Amino acid sequence: DVEPGKFYKGVVTRIEKYGAFINLNEQVRGLLRPRDMISLRLENLNVGDEIIVQAIDVRPEKREIDFKYIP
């Protein structure tokens, strides 16, 4: 289970104008929005990159997770 405030290693699987989709595993995916990136820009991410993200909002009923990147 993903818990708000905890850090997780994930893989960038898709990049859109509104953010990057990060997979923690095959069943768990969330969104990293540009506003939640500190010292990292969306255009510097590539599909396949491994990054450490912090879960900031977890909505299991909608199967949605918002992430934050903190270097």
Score class of each variant (00 low, 15 high):
Gly10Ser: 02
Ile70Arg: 08
Tyr69Cys: 03
Leu24Glu: 00
Glu50Asn: 13
Glu50Ser: 15
Ile52Asp: 05
Pro71Thr: 08
Lys68Ile: 08
Gly30Met: 04
Ile22Met: 02
Glu16Thr: 14
Arg59Leu: 05
Gly10Thr: 02
Pro4Phe: 09
Tyr8Glu: 00
Arg63Thr: 08
Asp66Ala: 09
Phe7Val: 06
Asn23Phe: 09
Gly10Tyr: 02
Asp1Glu: 14
Leu42Gln: 03
Glu26Ser: 15
Val28Arg: 06
Gly30Arg: 02
Glu50Met: 15
Glu3Asn: 09
Leu42Ile: 12
Gly10Met: 04
Glu50Gly: 12
Lys6Ile: 09
Val11Thr: 13
Glu16Asn: 09
Leu40Tyr: 04
Asn23His: 14
Val53Pro: 00
Asn25Asp: 10
Phe67Trp: 10
Leu24Ala: 01
Ile22His: 01
Gln27Ile: 13
Pro71Lys: 08
Lys62Asp: 09
Leu32Pro: 01
Arg35Leu: 07
Arg29Val: 13
Leu31His: 03
Thr13Ser: 13
Asp36Ser: 07
Asp1Val: 15
Ile56Tyr: 14
Leu42Met: 08
Ser39Ala: 13
Gln27Ser: 14
Lys9Gly: 05
Ala20Lys: 00
Ile51Pro: 00
Ile22Pro: 00
Asp57Cys: 10
Asp1Leu: 14
Val11Gly: 02
Lys17Ile: 13
Ile51Met: 07
Pro71Gly: 11
Asp1Thr: 14
Leu45Lys: 01
Tyr8Phe: 05
Leu45Val: 07
Glu64Phe: 14
Glu50Cys: 13
Gly10Asp: 00
Ile38Met: 12
Pro34Cys: 08
Ile51Tyr: 02
Ile22Ala: 00
Leu42Gly: 03
Val53Glu: 00
Lys17Asn: 13
Ile70Ala: 11
Val28Asp: 08
Phe21Glu: 04
Pro60Gln: 10
Arg29Ile: 13
Lys68Ala: 15
Val47Cys: 06
Arg63Pro: 08
Pro60Lys: 11
Ile52Thr: 12
Ile70Gln: 10
Ile22Ser: 00
Met37His: 03
Asn23Trp: 10
Gly30Cys: 04
Asn46His: 15
Asn44Lys: 09
Asp49Gly: 04
Phe67Arg: 01
Asp66Glu: 06
Leu45Glu: 00
Ile38Gln: 12
Asn25Phe: 09
Leu42His: 04
Lys9Met: 10
Ile65Met: 05
Asp49Gln: 13
Asp49Val: 05
Ile52Leu: 11
Lys9Cys: 11
Ile56Cys: 06
Ile52Met: 11
Glu43Gln: 11
Gly5Pro: 03
Arg59Gln: 05
Lys62Arg: 14
Tyr18His: 07
Leu32Arg: 01
Gly48Met: 06
Ile65Ser: 02
Lys68Met: 13
Phe21Thr: 07
Leu42Asp: 02
Ala20Gly: 02
Gly5Phe: 10
Glu3His: 14
Thr13Ile: 09
Glu50Phe: 15
Arg33Gln: 05
Ile52Pro: 02
Asp1Phe: 15
Glu16Ile: 08
Tyr69Gly: 03
Glu43Val: 10
Leu24Thr: 03
Leu24Val: 09
Gln27Val: 13
Leu32Met: 07
Asn44Cys: 13
Thr13Asp: 06
Lys68Tyr: 08
Ala20His: 01
Ala55Lys: 03
Val12Cys: 03
Lys17Trp: 15
Gly19Arg: 04
Gln27Glu: 13
Ile15Gly: 00
Ile52His: 07
Lys62Trp: 08
Lys68Gly: 14
Asn46Val: 13
Glu16Cys: 09
Phe67Gln: 02
Pro60Asp: 08
Glu50His: 15
Asp1Trp: 15
Leu42Ala: 03
Leu42Pro: 05
Val12Arg: 00
Gly30Pro: 01
Ile52Gln: 06
Pro34Arg: 12
Gly10His: 00
Ile56Asn: 05
Lys62Gln: 12
Gly10Cys: 04
Glu43Thr: 11
Leu45Gln: 00
Arg33Leu: 04
Arg14Met: 08
Leu42Tyr: 06
Arg14Asp: 04
Glu50Ala: 14
Val2His: 04
Ile65Phe: 06
Asp57Leu: 11
Pro34Ile: 11
Ile22Leu: 04
Lys9Tyr: 11
Phe7Cys: 10
Glu43Asp: 13
Gly48Ile: 01
Gly48Tyr: 06
Gln27Lys: 15
Tyr18Arg: 06
Arg35Asp: 09
Glu61Pro: 07
Glu26His: 15
Pro60Phe: 09
Ile65Gln: 03
Asn46Glu: 13
Gly48Ser: 05
Leu45Asn: 00
Gly5Gln: 06
Phe7Leu: 08
Thr13Leu: 05
Tyr8Arg: 00
Leu31Gly: 01
Arg59Asp: 08
Gly19Asn: 01
Pro60Trp: 12
Asp1Met: 15
Gly30Tyr: 02
Glu26Trp: 15
Val2Gly: 02
Phe67His: 02
Asp49Lys: 05
Ile52Phe: 09
Asn46Trp: 15
Val12Tyr: 02
Glu26Pro: 15
Pro71Tyr: 06
Val11His: 10
Gly5Ser: 06
Leu32Glu: 01
Asn23Gly: 09
Ile56His: 08
Tyr8Ser: 01
Asp49Thr: 07
Leu45Ala: 01
Val2Asn: 02
Arg14Leu: 09
Arg63Phe: 12
Asn44Met: 14
